[in-house]
Structure formats: structure tokens, C-alpha cells
Design a binder for these strands. Structure first.
Lengths: 139, 139
DNA sequence: CAGCATCCTCGTGGATACTG
DNA sequence: CAGTATCCACGAGGATGCTG
């Protein structure tokens, strides 16, 4: 996204379509973060309290340290999680949601619930779409 | 995501962390769809009624036909939008939300609102993070 | 334990040209 | 108008090895 342009360009904002908010950049800011492969999973695993790096890795199971580290950094950078280092030896670090991060969990929960309720409809739509050209009736 | 594995693998589901729903695959199904670059933008532009291909392209502005076509197909495949072809010449096609697609707009709206309310906090967190090592206090 | 560094693959998405 | 087809660049993300 913010690759070559430096800043996200906002299209002409045409007046049609009944004030449909065209390029709602703040939304992209959020989706670019939680739309990746691991962010939501990490956030949800911090919902019930702080977790250490290794614990998170075990909880998620199929994440590489590389991606865990990187995603944690990004979430931290955006102020969604807080990283705390305990000067023990060997070192101990834990991560927890910030207030901002916690506040994100609420709208996220709506999405989670929608997914739970509708993901089999989606799956059926997919097989229906794949089986025929388009034929089967939705709506 | 569903590249080589065929189906998404579900990690061991450890019993720790107070029943944190680890690999909530339905969520990934949703996020994989709306987490891409254009889906949400397209959906939001269909919120107020059907739109034709060209209209959508103009509304969004900086999308290529390739990505518009492809994203529309994916959304249609998942049963979120309905494609209607009018056998005129030259051909005319429009897209509209299905019931399923409409129902998704609600949880999505929560996310949009969160973004609007918090994206400057996120931006400030970012500059704060980038400026110092980590120093500045969140919470 | 909690990372960082490096290499490499592959999917997403942009640009461009062509068509029913 | 509403696509399809092709080529290509880039960045996300996996695998592996090393470190304070």
C-alpha cells in the first residue's frame, strides 16, 4: 500500500452512489494490520491476559518465530499491544493488550461472530459457484 | 493460505490461556476475503444499491480492471454479491449485495467506526514508536 | 528464552494489450 | 462496456541457523 506513493492517495471522491465513503483510508489502516495472517490470532490469544513469547508460539502452534516477532512488533508499533521485558536471566518478555488494543477486540468480536454464524453459508456458496458456472440462486 | 495444504490445518488446540479460541478458521475465511486490498471498498460501494462494473471502477478510482474483476468474482463466489448480466449490446452487468453480503456490512461497520475513532491514536503510536526505541508510555 | 539474520518461494496485485 | 490474457515486480511469509 504505502509503497511508492508515500501516502495513500484519495480518489476524486465522486458525488454519486449516495455518499458512499470511497477510499476510507482509516479502514485500510486497520485492515492492513488485522488483515494479515497472524494479527487477529495473536490479539485473541492476549485477550485473557499477558502471554510470554514462547507461550504465544505454543498457543498458536503453526507460526514461525520470524512471523511472531514481526507481527508482535507491528502490533506494538500501532499501540495495540504492550511489550514488557523482565531483566531476568534468561530473559523473560511478555505481551499484553493496551487499552487501544482491548478496544479493538470489541468490533473484532462482531466479525468473529459473523464468521461463526455464516462461514458454512460461505462454504456452500463456494461449492455452488465452483460446481456450476453461476447458476444456483443466491439472494 | 489454502495453497499446498488443501485444507487449513488446525493446531493441537492446547488447553491453556483460558479457552482462547486458537485457530478460529471461520475468522480466517472472513479475513482472507475482506483483508485484501479491495474487497471492503467494493462492498461499501455496493451498500447503497447495485452498481455497474464501470461505475465501480470510477467510484474506486485507483483499482485496475484486473483486480476489480477478480475481487468481484471472489466476492460472488463467496455468496456476498450477486452478478446480473443484462443481454443488451453492448453488454451491461451490475453487482449488488446479497443478503449474506448485507449482513456482513453490519460487523464491518463496527470496524469502520473503530478505525475512524482511533486511527489517529494509531498514527501517533507509530511515530512515537519510530522516534524512540519504545520508551513512550502507552497503556 | 526470546529473539535477529539470511535465503528463498510464491501469491498478490499492477501495467498493458486484446476481445465479444 | 465488461471483461480476458500475459507479463512482471514486490513483499509477505516459511525454513534454517546463530546469539545475548
Amino acid at each position: 500500500m504505502r509503497s511508492a506513493e508515500g501516502i495513500i492517495r484519495i480518489p476524486p471522491m465522486p458525488a454519486g452512489a449516495g455518499a458512499a465513503l470511497i477510499a476510507k483510508c482509516p479502514v485500510r489502516d486497520v485492515l492492513d494490520r488485522i488483515g494479515d495472517k497472524w494479527s487477529v490470532l495473536i490479539l485473541k490469544n492476549l485477550e485473557d491476559g499477558p502471554q510470554r513469547f514462547g507461550a504465544l508460539k505454543r498457543l498458536i502452534g503453526d507460526i514461525s518465530q520470524r512471523m511472531l516477532t514481526q507481527t508482535l512488533r507491528d502490533l506494538q508499533r500501532d499501540g495495540l499491544i504492550l511489550r514488557t521485558v523482565y531483566p531476568t536471566v534468561p530473559p523473560s518478555v511478555d505481551y499484553r493488550l493496551t487499552k487501544l488494543g482491548t478496544s479493538l477486540m470489541d468490533p473484532l468480536e462482531h466479525l468473529v461472530q459473523w464468521s461463526d454464524r455464516n462461514h458454512d453459508k460461505v462454504r456452500k456458496a463456494r461449492v455452488s459457484f465452483d460446481r456450476a458456472g453461476v447458476s444456483s440462486g443466491h439472494q
